[in-house]
C-alpha cells in the first residue's frame, strides 16, 4: 500500500463512528493500485484498521467486486439474471466468450479483458447489458456488445 493510499484512507475514518466502517472504501482505494488486493496489501489494511488479517480476507472474499487475484485491464460483465436472460443475455455472453476465446471468469491471454457474468445490475428495463468497469452499456445486441469489447484498449 502506497503512502498516498494510506493517507486517503485515513481521511475516511472520520465519516464513521468506528474506523472499521471505512474498510470497504479503503479496500476500493487499495485495489485501485494494482487491480486486486494481495496478501501483503491485506496485511497492510489489517494493520491500519487494527484487526486480524483474516478479518480483512473474509471481507475480500465475501464481496464480488473485490479481487484477490490479478485481473484483466478491463472487466466486462454480462448480467445473466432473469430479465436479461429473457432478452438474450446468455446468447450474448456465449458469443462474447467465442469472440474473446475465454470462458466467463477468465482473462484473455493478452491481459486485456476479464470476462464475467453477474447477477442483476438494475438494468432490467434496458436488457441485455454489459458492465464495463464502472460503466453500464444497455439495450445491446450481440454485435454492439462485440464492438464495445473491441474498443477497449
Amino acid at each position: 500500500m502506497t503512502p498516498e493510499t494510506r493517507k486517503k484512507i485515513e481521511t475516511l475514518f472520520e465519516r464513521y463512528p468506528r474506523k472499521r466502517g471505512a474498510l470497504l472504501p479503503a479496500i476500493y482505494l487499495t485495489q485501485a493500485e494494482k487491480g486486486y488486493v494481495d496478501r501483503e496489501a491485506a496485511q497492510d489494511l489489517a494493520e491500519l484498521f487494527e484487526i486480524p488479517p483474516v478479518a480483512v480476507w473474509e471481507v475480500l472474499s465475501f464481496y464480488n467486486m473485490f479481487y484477490t487475484e490479478p485481473q484483466g485491464r478491463h472487466h466486462v460483465y454480462v448480467c445473466t439474471n432473469l430479465s436479461c436472460s429473457l432478452r438474450g443475455a446468455r446468447t450474448m455472453l456465449k458469443s462474447l466468450e467465442a469472440h474473446l476465446g475465454v470462458k466467463a471468469g477468465q482473462t484473455t491471454s493478452d491481459g486485456r479483458v476479464t470476462l464475467g457474468h453477474e447477477e442483476c445490475l438494475g438494468s432490467c428495463g434496458t436488457a441485455p447489458m454489459l458492465r464495463v468497469n464502472s460503466d453500464y452499456h444497455e439495450n445491446l445486441d450481440t454485435d454492439e456488445a462485440k464492438r464495445i469489447v473491441d474498443s477497449l484498449e
Partner: peptide, 22 residues
C-alpha cells in the same frame, strides 16, 4: 457508502454489518 457486490447487503442488518466494514 458504497457496497461491493453482495445482494444480501440489501437486507437491513446485512447492510448494517457491511456499513461497519464487515
Amino acid at each position: 457508502h458504497r457496497g461491493a457486490g453482495a445482494y444480501i447487503c440489501g437486507e437491513e442488518t446485512g447492510l448494517l454489518e457491511s456499513l461497519e466494514g464487515k
